[in-house]
Amino acid sequence: MHRFANPGRFMRVARRVRPWTLGAALLLLPVGLYQALIASPPDYQQHDTVRILYIHVPAAILAQGAYVLMALGSAAFLIWKHPLGDLSARAVAPIGAVFCLICLVTGAVWGKPTWGTYWVWDARLTSMLILLFLFIGYMALANAFDDPARGDKPAAILAIVGIVNIPVIKFSVYFFNTLHQQSTLFSAGGPAMPPEMLTPLALLGGSFAAFFLWLFAVRLAGEFAKVRLRAIRGGLIRRERPAESRPSASARGTR
């Protein structure tokens, strides 16, 4: 694990997995779409609207996964001053925000024909909306300053504080009365869903997850390059002797 802690080496690994993740995402997508829209059966209650599930659920899982990654990165940055932590959190925040938005919007257009409403303020929907606001708040805070490095710390603290929302989302449907039903995938007796419906979910979920990794690797490279740019422009690294890793905020103070 330690060899990945070196930012330069980590970035090379991230660069190498890019074509594989994109390839997997694009390969799984048509198969998953075929299964989701054509091959899988309509539900006995919801009929064809159940097909929205196959994008709604992966988006919900990945949005929460992105938040956990963002909080872990922020913790690594705050506690160990690990530069990759901050970079990962900055890279994953917009990805998480978009998956969270997809979850909310697909949920709304699914809710209208099944529940009879686009939106209700129940505990599950509200906590998911808070997750979107946490992503947006993180991005706003991280980029609020002329010197982006000054935004690192407040944004990281917000990300760590907001992690309490993740168990709230998970258990909202068990702890409170909600319009949203309980978990299908993680229900007590295994997934409450037949295999012909689990197949499109797994395929599109796999495609989305691979695409998520690709987005993360690409954005991470961008954040890495931006930090190096700032360092060079700030005269922290002399061009003839480029350092391998990004100078952290504390290194700047001691120099």
Binding site: T114, G116, L179
Partner: peptide, 18 residues
């Protein structure tokens, strides 16, 4: 004034139920 449907977490193919 308003009635919303709440469904549970179980999904089933329509044909299987038929």
């Amino acid at each position: 004034d308003e009635v919303l449907a709440k469904h549970d977490e179980n999904y089933m193919p329509a044909e299987a139920v038929e």
